[in-house]
């Protein structure tokens, strides 16, 4: 069984924010809720790094451990989903999550939070696949259609990868190797593993 994962290649992400737009559009996510975001470190300076982040579908998910009503569950693919009918909007998952993934529409007085919303890895929720209720609460269930998450599917630089963890990490390792090979002079400043001796031995 595949273990679904996200991977963002920071050397490729160009901070175009298209993944966010695609996600909002595909799932008709409510106003004020963002299931995915791009964060740029060192914006406008040398060493600028952009990363697209959403729920990472953690193995020992902190959100699932803290939830007072125990509304999270894991699919066979390792996707972390939750049941909005059970959620009481306490916000504890947002406090516990390392990635700031859980989001809340405001609902009522006292700063009361509505039901938690987060990235579903395009896998819907506990409702029947492709039902209206499922779309209403969780958005489209692309996994059940045999498709992968839209954010990664449409990423123009293929920085964002989503799918079987083994497959995408292999892809990423190939990229890293490729990059090192094509590096004319592996210069001393970078922290990447240098292919020691290649230049001398193979010339190209």
């Amino acid at each position: 069984m595949a273990r679904m994962k996200f991977l963002c290649d920071d050397d490729r992400c160009i901070e175009c924010n298209a993944c966010i737009t695609a996600c909002k559009n595909e799932h008709e996510v409510p106003w004020g809720v963002n299931r995915r975001r791009v964060v740029t470190i060192n914006d406008g300076q040398s060493g600028e790094t952009s990363i697209s982040v959403a729920c990472m579908h953690c193995s020992d998910a902190p959100c699932a451990q803290v939830c007072p009503v125990d509304c999270f569950y894991f699919t066979d693919d390792g996707v972390v989903l939750h049941d909005k009918d059970l959620c009481i909007g306490c916000g504890y998952c947002f406090y516990a999550c390392p990635f700031g993934a859980p989001q809340f529409p405001q609902d009522g007085a006292f700063g009361n939070r509505g039901k938690m919303d987060k990235c579903t890895f395009c896998a819907g929720g506990p409702e029947e696949d492709h039902s209206e209720a499922e779309f209403e609460k969780y958005g489209r269930n692309r996994l059940a259609e045999g498709k992968l998450p839209l954010c990664a599917e449409m990423c123009s630089t293929k920085a964002l990868l989503a799918g079987d963890g083994d497959v995408i990490s292999n892809l990423f390792s190939q990229r890293v190797t490729q990059r090192q090979l094509s590096q004319e002079e592996p210069d001393s400043g970078t922290a990447q593993v240098k292919l020691w001796g290649w230049k001398t031995a193979y010339k190209d």
Binding site: N17, N34, R37, V38, V39
Partner: peptide, 16 residues
């Protein structure tokens, strides 16, 4: 923290 075009709470932080 960095910069994020998404304007939600602490969206500019990747990992807390």
């Amino acid at each position: 923290s960095g910069y994020s075009a998404v304007n939600s709470q602490e969206s500019e932080i990747l990992i807390q």
